Simulated scan of single mutants.
Amino acid sequence: MKFSKEDIQKLTLEYDSGIIPPPYSHVFHMELDWSESILKVKLDLHYTDRDELSEQEILDEGFTLSDDYHYEGELNSIWIEPIQELLTETKWSPRQLDEGGIILYLNEDSVPKTPLSQEVWQLMAQDLIQAIYESTKKEAPLHINYRLVTEENTLDCTITVHFSNRTVILDQGEKSQALNWDYSIQLMKLIFTPDYHYEIAKEAPGTKPGAYIDCGDGLWHELGKGVVNIDPAFDAVGKIQQRFEDMLLG
């Protein structure tokens, strides 16, 4: 089953996190409508099974006691084309989901469709939710700060990811440039792949030779010491260093 960009003008996404335990478990219902060349959005997000936990257990995991969220409004129309492109590329499963995942309703169709590319659609939904959070000032854009210290130089840069309008800006001193969106999102996934040892993080970046990263929370980690690979077969730390060195030194 293939669709052209003109075939679909409305889309509903429903997601259930499945067996993930609280306070992380959640469901959401998102309606998208670009039939009038603007992107109208409705979102209802609800965290589930939190009555099994104490208030302190929820807070200890970095959540609040009121994380459910409702939004009805518009998003930047720059999101329309990526949604359409993903729809035209999607292959569909003939089976319903057993536990957890995302299903789609196309246009006014009441029959759910299950995309085979679950991870891709879940990432798209997460990006759209983040765009809503930024547009409503619930959350600020993501800032990644990086420092490379060599024997000769100290080089600093900041990557700012604006989900609200799908732009990514690299600031290095007085220089500023836009980065490719897809490349940047893959870099963000890579950055959050390793294990971060917060017990040895610092409030200021290092000054000795090495590579240091702040993932937006004001705490600095040294790559290779405070940031280590989870999977020995995949050198995420090395890849992060290489990507930033290419940007800083290229």
Rank of each mutant, 00 (worst) to 15 (best):
K5L: 06
E6L: 08
E6N: 11
Q9S: 09
K10C: 03
K10P: 00
D16S: 07
I20S: 05
I20N: 00
S37K: 12
D51A: 06
D51C: 06
L53I: 08
E61P: 01
L65S: 05
S66W: 01
S66C: 06
H70V: 05
S77P: 09
P82L: 02
P82M: 04
L87P: 03
T90L: 07
S93Y: 08
L104A: 01
L104C: 07
L106S: 00
L106N: 02
S110W: 05
P112V: 02
S117E: 15
Q122R: 13
M124A: 11
K137A: 12
P141H: 02
N145R: 14
Y146F: 14
E152N: 01
D156R: 11
T158P: 05
S164A: 15
S164W: 07
N165E: 14
T167K: 13
T167E: 14
T167L: 01
V168K: 01
N180D: 15
Q186A: 10
Q186C: 04
Q186I: 08
I191T: 07
F192V: 10
F192G: 06
T193S: 15
T193G: 00
E199P: 04
E203Y: 08
A211T: 13
G224H: 11
P232T: 07
D235G: 04
Q242M: 12
E245A: 12
L248D: 09
